[in-house]
Write a protein that binds this DNA or RNA. Structure first.
Length: 478
RNA sequence: GGCCCCAUCGUCUAGCGGUUAGGACACCGGCCUCUCACGUCGGUAACACGGGUUCAAUUCCCGUUGGGGUCACCA
């Protein structure tokens, strides 16, 4: 059984790059699950007590839930390998550290941070280019567990660590590049590499997939597995998602937290679709449902080179998902749009919205955009755009709007085709082209110069409101 | 600087020795048309450079250049 995990640090919002890591793991777990066995574990790595907060844990869990990335084990759902929060696992790390010390694979170090900082500074002063490595001061020192100490791994001076990355292939790193790094801090809290290894091995993780920025952590982690006499999991590193200018993607480059995209009216599956296609491909296919992603995902087609985030393409993918009923049903579309309609001060139920989704499906690029385009349907009287009125609600159009109202009034049934037929029958007598009547009518009915097709608008609004709006507009012209 | 990684249109990518180097987004035109979209047709646009290997390199190897990651009692 393949077991993967996502192990975020609760030090802020869930970053879009983090979502991609979670997604790839999740996709793999779900794919394996469909093939017989797969598990997705969520673990909170909160050992950085300075920056970790419960609020952040909540945001991360909410974000994952919104995205639909459910976990089989972890916070909220439990599981046999808990607890799933590192600060609740301190005894386990101590147990593993003691084991390593007993096996002489690790040792207690009594050097203080101040002493080490001083050594680092001294070296830097002597040779600015030199790289400080812990000199192994406490390697042979008499053990005194009662004294304050950290636990360091005894790293071999020679040799190298080799592993085969699922996306990068064979990676060889000389041991000389490592030092006797710290496993456990003096307060008993593990450092990242040790905590990750102890958790991954004790939770039965078989594949670790994470960002390429973690690739440098893999050799030391493998050393820990070896010291523990535990088989290391497989590793897969994902290329990084950079900002358009090649820098690390951060707040100053625009929205990077999942919640922002949620609030901007993105579809969670569009977010996942864009992220999945970033660093991974499946022939020429660009648009995927979640099921298609699960079925198609593999490590072989993961890319090795870093990429740059493209907000425009992201938006285009979102538009694609909103356009396609197969990817976003009317019901879901309405449910996701409703909060944004409500935010505009319109008290409208999901059911009412659902009936008009077809009107704006091809046009709206986000659910926020959808709410905006639907405003005229639910606001009565409609908000008339001043510029639109100045341009089209001119004296000459007043009689036309009244005539149009008269032409439409008796139409039966009140649906697009006969309504359009009625107007087409009337039009020749006016000697005007359709656009000369359509634009003033559009502004009168929707308040804007751009809207869904005029006859769809007329049909949806209903006889009463159409006649009222046309006549009100004509009256307003004076 | 040490160690590690990467390199196809502006961007995301297909390609796994022989292709008119394909798709998508973006951009620019045409068509459709009651507006805006959608749709559709077409266009501009890429193998970083230098050596090898080979009958043949975008593809394999080496180097150069460029870019990135990381060097903590952060993760």
């Amino acid at each position: 059984m393949e077991r993967v995990r996502f192990a975020p640090s609760p030090t802020g919002y869930l970053h879009i790059g983090g979502v991609r890591t979670a997604l790839f793991n999740w996709l793999w777990a779900r794919k394996r699950q469909s093939q017989g066995g797969g598990g997705f574990v969520l673990r909170i790595e909160d050992t950085d007590r300075e920056r970790s907060t419960q609020a952040s844990v909540d945001v991360i869990l909410d974000s994952l839930r919104w995205l639909g990335l459910d976990w089989d084990e972890g916070p909220g759902v439990g599981g046999p390998s808990g607890p799933y929060t590192q600060m609740e696992r301190l005894p386990i790390y101590k147990e593993y550290a003691d084991l390593l010390i007993a096996k002489s694979k690790a040792y207690r170090c009594y050097c203080t941070k101040e002493e080490l900082d001083a050594q680092r500074a001294a070296l830097k002063a002597r040779d600015p280019k030199a790289q400080f490595r812990y000199p192994g001061t406490c390697r042979g020192r008499t053990d005194a567990p009662a004294l304050p100490h950290v636990v360091r791994l005894l790293v071999p001076e020679t040799g190298s660590v080799r592993y085969v990355d699922k996306v990068f292939g064979e990676i060889v790193t000389p041991n000389a590049a490592q030092q006797d790094f710290v496993l456990l801090r003096s307060d008993g809290v593990p450092l990242y590499n040790f905590g990750a290894v102890v958790d991954d091995t004790s939770m039965g993780i078989t594949l670790v997939a994470r960002g390429r920025d973690h690739m440098v952590n893999t050799p030391p982690q493998i050393m820990i597995y070896e010291a523990l006499d535990r088989p290391p999991p497989a590793f897969a590193h994902l290329p990084m998602m950079l900002a358009p200018n090649g820098e690390k993607l951060s707040k100053r480059h625009g929205a990077v937290s999942v919640t922002e995209y949620r609030d901007q009216g993105y579809s969670p599956r569009a977010v996942l679709n864009y992220l999945a296609r970033f660093g991974w491909s499946h022939g020429d296919q660009e648009v995927f449902s979640l099921d298609e992603l699960v079925a198609a995902f593999d490590w072989e087609h993961c890319n090795k080179s870093d990429g740059k985030f493209d907000a425009k393409k992201f938006l285009a993918i979102n538009h694609e998902h909103l356009k396609t009923p197969r990817l976003t049903s009317d019901a879901e579309y309405a449910a996701r749009t409703q909060p944004f309609v409500a935010a505009r001060g319109l008290d409208v139920g999901v059911a009412s919205i659902e009936t008009v989704v077809p009107l704006i499906r091809e046009r709206a690029v986000t659910f926020v955009d959808a709410a905006d385009r639907l405003d005229f349907v639910f606001r009565d009287p409609p908000a008339i755009d001043a510029a639109a009125a100045t341009k089209f609600l001119v004296p000459a159009s007043a009689p036309l709007l009244r005539q149009l109202a008269a032409v439409l009034e008796p139409v039966e049934p009140w649906i697009a085709a006969p309504l359009e037929a009625a107007v087409n029958a009337w039009l020749p007598g006016t000697g005007l082209p359709m656009k000369d009547i359509a634009q003033p009518a559009r502004v009168a009915l929707t308040g804007r110069t751009a809207s869904p097709g005029l006859f769809d608008v007329i049909a949806v609004l209903g006889r009463t409101r159409v006649l009222a709006r046309l006549r009100a507009a004509a009256d307003s012209i004076g």
